[in-house]
């Protein structure tokens, strides 16, 4: 008999105080509380983190990979947003 699958949760880990939480993977759990405990057991067995966030995967709204060309292309023709676009005299180029 196939058991019904539990909801999928995405797990984010802060490895050290002051750093961002980073996505590390996902797991199935019954609710947020259980997801946190599972995440601790699965993703921090070697003290990899000081803080965990879990988010129900279905609550994440993501951009579509297939559309990414047109979604991100507004910045393609704006090289002047990068510092190295500007050629300055050598003596002050470390600005």
């Amino acid at each position: 008999m196939a058991t019904q699958e539990l909801d999928l949760y995405e797990v984010f880990l802060r490895s050290r105080r002051g750093l961002d939480h980073k996505h590390v993977g996902s797991l199935h759990a019954e609710d947020h509380e259980q997801a946190l405990e599972y995440a601790r057991d699965v993703y921090t067995r070697r003290s990899e983190g000081v803080s965990i966030w879990v988010v129900r995967s279905s609550d994440i709204c993501a951009s579509q990979e297939d559309d990414s060309d047109s979604f991100f292309d507004p910045s393609d023709d704006k090289p002047y947003r990068h510092a190295m676009y500007y050629e300055l005299p050598k003596a002050v180029d470390n600005m």
Partner: peptide
């Protein structure tokens, strides 16, 4: 304060062109 520090890191990275474009105008 963590959130302030992280905002500063992002802002500094993005802002590096601001000063250079100003100086380029001056040049």
């Amino acid at each position: 304060y963590g959130p302030y520090a992280r905002a500063m890191i992002r802002i500094c990275k993005e802002e590096s062109f601001h000063q250079r474009q100003g100086y380029e105008i001056m040049v």
